[in-house]
C-alpha cells in the first residue's frame, strides 16, 4: 500500500512565525476602553472608599428595618398587587394583538421590502421609549390610574413582541411555504398553512415571556401614579416606621413574580417541547432554578 509521505520522519525545518501584533493591540485597547470610562464614571459619581465601605452597613440597616415584615395591610396590598398583574395582563394582550400582524409585516421573508423597512422602523421607535416614560406621556390624556399603565405597557410590548415575532417568522423553514406556493397557494394560504403552524408555538411562548417582564414593569409604574404596588413600596420606604410594611409589600411582589415566572416557564416549556414536566418534583425544581436549556425558551429580554 502506498501513502503519500506527508509527514517526513525527521522534524521539519520550519520557521516559527512572529507573534502577530493585532490581537495584542486589541486586547489592550479593550482593556483601556473599559478601564478609562469606568474610572471617569466612578470619579463622577463621587464614589469614595468610605462610602463604598459604609454601603453594606446601610443596606443591612434597611433590611433589618424591614424585618419582621408587617402584613397588617394584607388586603390592601393584595388589591394593589392584583392591579399590577391586571395591568401587565391587559398590556400583554394589547401587545400580542397588535404585534402579531406587525410581526408579519416586519418579516423579510413574507412581506415586501417597502412594508418591512417602515414597520421595523416604527417598532424600533416604539421600543426606544421605556414604559415609565410612555406612562408619563399617557397620563396627560388618560389621567392617573391603571388604564394609563396598561396603555403604556401595551404600547411598549407591541414594539418588543413585534420584533420577536418577525424574527420567529423569518426563522421558519421555507420548504412548506415553497410547497404551498408550488401547489398554487396564495400568500394568505402560505401564511395560514406554512408560517403560522411553524411559528405559532414560539410566538405564544414570547407572549408569555413578555407577560413575565410586564409584571415587573407594571409593579414599577405605580411610581408615576399608573396604578399597582410600586407606589405602595416607595411610599412605605419614606418613613422608617413604615419599613416593615414596605418589607411586606416587597416580599409579596417577589413571591408573585416568582410564581408567575415559574408558571409561565412551565407553560412555555410545554408549548415549545410539547412535553409536560416529568414529575411534580422536577417541575418544582424548574420553578426554583428557572433553568431551561432550549434557547427558544430564553428570549432576548429587550
Amino acid at each position: 500500500m502506498t501513502v503519500p509521505d506527508l509527514a517526513p520522519d525527521a522534524i521539519p525545518d520550519m520557521a516559527r512565525p512572529a507573534e502577530p501584533l493585532a490581537p495584542k493591540v486589541i486586547k489592550w485597547a479593550v482593556t483601556f476602553g473599559i478601564l478609562i470610562p469606568f474610572i471617569w464614571a466612578v470619579a463622577g459619581l463621587e464614589v469614595s472608599p468610605s462610602r463604598m465601605w459604609a454601603a453594606p452597613g446601610q443596606v443591612w440597616v434597611l433590611i433589618s428595618g424591614m424585618f419582621p415584615p408587617d402584613f397588617t395591610e394584607m388586603g390592601r396590598l393584595m388589591t394593589k398587587l392584583l392591579e399590577s398583574i391586571y395591568v401587565a395582563w391587559i398590556g400583554t394582550l394589547i401587545g400580542a394583538m397588535f404585534s402579531f400582524p406587525a410581526g408579519f409585516m416586519a418579516a423579510a421573508n413574507i412581506s415586501p421590502r417597502w412594508l418591512v423597512a417602515p414597520t421595523r422602523a416604527i417598532l424600533s421607535a416604539i421600543r426606544a421609549f421605556p414604559e415609565l416614560i410612555l406612562a408619563i406621556i399617557f397620563i396627560v390624556p388618560f389621567g392617573l390610574g391603571p388604564f394609563t399603565g396598561a396603555m403604556a405597557i401595551g404600547l411598549h410590548s407591541i414594539g418588543t413582541l413585534g420584533k420577536l415575532t418577525s424574527e420567529v417568522i423569518e426563522g421558519v423553514d421555507d420548504g412548506p411555504l415553497e410547497a404551498i406556493g408550488a401547489s398554487g397557494g396564495t400568500t394568505m394560504l402560505r401564511m395560514r398553512f406554512g408560517v403560522v403552524p411553524q411559528a405559532m408555538p414560539n410566538i405564544v411562548a414570547y407572549w408569555l415571556y413578555r407577560f413575565e417582564i410586564n409584571v415587573r414593569a407594571s409593579a414599577v409604574l405605580g411610581l408615576v401614579g399608573a396604578g399597582g404596588i410600586g407606589a405602595e413600596i416607595v411610599a412605605r420606604l419614606r418613613f422608617r416606621g413604615d419599613w416593615p410594611k414596605a418589607g411586606a409589600a416587597l416580599i409579596l411582589t417577589i413571591v408573585a413574580v416568582l410564581v408567575i415566572d415559574a408558571a409561565s416557564a412551565a407553560i412555555r416549556r410545554r408549548i415549545i417541547t410539547g412535553q409536560p414536566s416529568q414529575s411534580p418534583i422536577s417541575k418544582w425544581m424548574t420553578a426554583i432554578t428557572g433553568s431551561h436549556r432550549d434557547p427558544r425558551l430564553t428570549a432576548d429580554p429587550s
Partner: peptide, 15 residues
C-alpha cells in the same frame, strides 16, 4: 509549546 508544535510540523500555524 513551540517545540511541541515543531515536532508535529505545524509550528507555522501557531497563531
Amino acid at each position: 509549546a513551540m517545540q511541541s508544535l515543531e515536532r508535529v510540523g505545524i509550528v507555522e500555524k501557531a497563531y
